[in-house]
Simulated assay, not measured.
Amino acid sequence: MNKIKLTMLEKIILILKMVIGSSISWELAILFGSKYPYLGPISLILCLQATLIKSIRFGIARIIGTMIGVASVFILAHSLHANSWSIAVIMMVSLVIPLILGANSTTLHQIALSVLLVLEFEHKLPGYGPDRIRDSIIGVAVALLLHIFFNPPNLTKRAIAEVEILPQILADKLKSLAMWLEAGASQKNYFNLDMNLLRKKMFEAETMIKKAELSLKFNPVSKKRKPLLHEGDFLLKTLNQVSIDIDLLFKIMDEWSKTGSLTKESMKAWTQNFFLLESLLRNWNEGKAITDVAFNETLSNEKFHFPAIWHAQHLISTLKQHPRI
């Protein structure tokens, strides 16, 4: 999945969380007896992820990885100094068991980092290992509390916005399909490329819906946002069905044209049908009721005409079954 791009406001809020959280975690680390209070803010800054669930997962991985890394150094190399061989051997031993137990990559990274730093600094900075564990817990805890109670991450509006633009794009595709027929159904067209771009946009919208669902986990305002997100997901499923019908209508027309049996009369009739479907889709998107439609009939080739009529009627049926409110 692509990384979530933050808006300017979200970046400002993130900065405030890092500033406020670093100050709080530093003071708490000192309060609990830490000699190296900078370890708290480091964990906090790393833990402030785009969503709450990501922050929680990273925080857990950070704490577990730190504990395993510190314990490994104390057990395996308490009297050793850092060098290439000691680092390699201890890091390998420390990582193998968590790997077998199914640890994720973030946890493995944190274990390796802790092994490296504790092995290097424990002899130079007495108490570094225990402080690293305690201060990591403090930093993670402060980060999660800030995320939960101070403008918690919420991707619902962004996800809904990506879905809301799709009906207009689908209507534009019906219009381009009508214009392609009106111009003589040339074999040189960009409809397949356009549909591929549309599928990409739909996939991105689906991905954003899933990210938004994750952003609502442990979110105190999630009850208000979940119905809106559910509506967006339902709309996306409806538009996927419409997209399939439009894609198949083009393939039918394209194949029909290649056989040489697509007459001017049929082109004119289906040009009007596609403009009609475009108008219905735009009206549906505006919340207007869908009425019964009488398509322009042409029986020059039943092999293609009847499947096309079926998909056109199915498109309308989909819109009728799922009206926009």
Results as ranks from 00 to 15, higher is better:
H305P: 15
R57N: 15
N273S: 06
A29S: 11
D131R: 04
H230M: 14
E120R: 12
N154E: 12
A141H: 00
K217A: 06
L174Y: 15
P220Y: 01
I160V: 09
L144W: 04
L193W: 14
T238V: 10
A289T: 14
T7M: 02
A50S: 14
L146G: 04
P152D: 07
I60S: 09
L229Y: 01
E231C: 15
E182D: 10
D194S: 07
L236G: 11
G59H: 03
S114K: 03
A112R: 02
L146P: 11
W256C: 07
K173I: 03
S79F: 15
P307T: 11
L229H: 06
M91V: 07
L299T: 15
D254I: 04
I160Y: 03
F295Q: 03
S136K: 02
F149A: 03
M18V: 12
H78W: 11
L281K: 06
S114T: 13
S300Q: 09
L14F: 06
N151C: 12
K201C: 13
A77L: 04
M91Q: 12
L249D: 07
D233K: 12
T291W: 08
G33I: 00
W270Y: 13
I30W: 09
A185H: 01
R134L: 10
E255F: 12
E10I: 01
F191T: 00
L80V: 09
D254R: 11
S257P: 09
W180D: 00
I4S: 13
N296C: 10
K188N: 09
I133W: 06
I138K: 01
L117M: 08
P307M: 05
D292S: 03
I169V: 11
K224L: 14
K226P: 09
Q272C: 15
F149H: 02
F306R: 05
R132N: 12
K157G: 07
F275H: 12
K251S: 10
I12C: 05
G69Q: 01
K210V: 14
I42V: 06
H78I: 08
S72I: 04
F191K: 10
L239Y: 06
L95D: 00
A269S: 08
L145H: 00
S55H: 04
A308I: 03
Q187K: 12
I15Q: 04
G102A: 05
H123D: 11
G21C: 01
K224P: 08
A112H: 04
F306G: 05
M253C: 12
F250H: 12
L119Q: 06
F150S: 04
S79L: 14
